[in-house]
Amino acid sequence: MDISNYLYLSALLFTIGAVGVVVRRNAIVVFMCIELMLNAANLAFVTFSRINGNLDGQVASFFTMVVAACEVVVGLAIIVTIYRSRRSASVDDASLLKR
């Protein structure tokens, strides 16, 4: 098996996550799809680290995990705040500027 198969898998997972961000309406599911995209990027980082034979890619992947944790904490707090005022977690319901 070629090592680049990991890169193909990463591209596939990233694409699936991108579709989810655009198609799904539930804000929490949209967040989960963003997590999937970040994970796919991490897999590519780890694979590149192995191809190049140094640990820089793994360090980048480590930083991505920290940033993802921050993003989840703040994003979920925003979702809870929106839910508290609007009683809905759907991204389509927050359309106050349209009207």
Binding site: R24, R25, N26, I28, I79, V80
Partner: peptide
């Protein structure tokens, strides 16, 4: 461990029964 548990926690809080239209 942490992130998915946080997701499930918020799901239970915000509406586990609200499925997408």
């Amino acid at each position: 461990g942490a992130v998915m548990m946080l997701f499930l926690f918020i799901l239970m809080l915000v509406g586990v029964d609200s499925s997408d239209s």
